[in-house]
């Protein structure tokens, strides 16, 4: 029987992954499982519409058609048309990849930086922890909108500016989650035992402590994804960041407010998209949170 498998870092890996995954899934209780499923279904709706839109795209996103202004939702225009006679369905779904990409970018920055600062300050404590916390306090004291305006004013409009500005703002929330996880586990005796064995801090942090908080982190990422969509949409709604030539849901909402009583559907469609995705992420995050609570065995 060959037991020693090694990963890229030449570290021994032992546990059969599938078995472990099954064991974790069995820890999820019914309520958490239901929430998780609802979340997946909610996220599947926009994705499904997007896939339809990939093959069925009867209208161009920019071509105006004055004859068909303010058409109510129907068979010809599923979500109706706006003030220039453009099809709302096509426009809403063409905004999806950009919104999702921006969200992913924001969370990537927030999560990576937050993970490193949080892990170091949680594990080492002392002055590293002190300055890590001051940094996060400083970031928390800046309003998101202000930070967005600052970046746009300094570096001009653009998608990257939005991603970096919001990414920085998302660092503290990730840092808190990870720091508290590390704080909780670094008190355990097994960490002391490993230190006595001369294990490097790197090994303890990434091989022992990080896997213990992985699910907690996933839950935070799901939540962060929802928050990033909300933050990006509000920036676009104010006309900051993403250039008006790019279609974003926040931008569509801003356009729609001028004629909201003539064509409420042009506001409802992007609004519903935001709500569905945000709700879906919340449910997934909640389901995962339950898993962490049960999964963090003594």
């Amino acid at each position: 029987m060959k037991l020693l498998k090694r990963d890229k870092n030449n570290e021994v890996i032992l546990a059969p992954t599938l078995k472990r995954a099954y064991y974790r899934a069995s820890l999820m209780n019914k309520g958490a499982k239901l929430q998780f499923k609802i979340g997946i279904i909610l996220l599947a709706i926009p994705l499904f519409l997007f896939l339809i839109n990939l093959v069925y795209r009867p209208y161009d996103i920019t071509t105006m058609n004055m004859a068909e202004r303010f058409q109510a939702p129907g068979l010809r225009h599923w979500f109706g048309t706006d003030n220039y006679g453009r099809d709302v369905f096509v426009r809403v779904l063409s905004g999806l990849p950009l919104t999702v990409l921006i969200s992913i970018g924001i969370n990537l920055i927030g999560c990576l930086v937050g993970l490193i600062i949080g892990a170091l300050s949680g594990y080492f404590g002392g002055s590293i922890d002190y300055w890590g916390n001051r940094l996060s306090d400083a970031l928390l004291s800046i309003p998101v909108i202000l930070m967005g305006m600052l970046f746009v004013a300094t570096f001009g409009d653009g998608i990257w500016q939005v991603i970096v500005a919001l990414g920085i703002m998302f660092i503290p929330s990730y840092m808190r989650v990870i720091r508290s996880g590390f704080l909780e586990y670094r008190q355990r005796n097994f960490v002391k035992r490993l230190q006595l064995l001369g294990a490097s801090s790197n090994r303890i942090i990434w091989l022992h402590l990080f896997p213990l908080i992985r699910i907690r982190l996933l839950s935070a990422i799901a939540l962060g994804f929802a928050n990033a969509i909300l933050a990006e949409s509000s920036l676009s709604f104010l006309g900051l960041g993403v250039p008006p030539t790019q279609i974003t849901w926040g931008g569509m909402l801003k356009d729609a407010q001028g004629f909201i009583f003539q064509a409420p559907w042009s506001a409802i469609a992007p609004g519903l998209m935001i709500v569905t995705i945000v709700l879906g992420c919340f449910f997934i995050s909640n389901g995962l949170k339950h898993l962490t609570e049960k999964g963090s065995l003594q």
Binding site: L3, E11, V12, L14, A15, R20, R188, N189, F190, R193, L194, L197, G198, A199, R203, H208, P211, L212, S296, L297, Q298
Partner: peptide, 22 residues
Amino acid sequence: PYSSFNPRKTIGYQLMEPLVIQ
């Protein structure tokens, strides 16, 4: 004894770890 072990690693892994580190 419960907090002397990483809950997510097998006993075998944790037994071998000292020697792997060494």
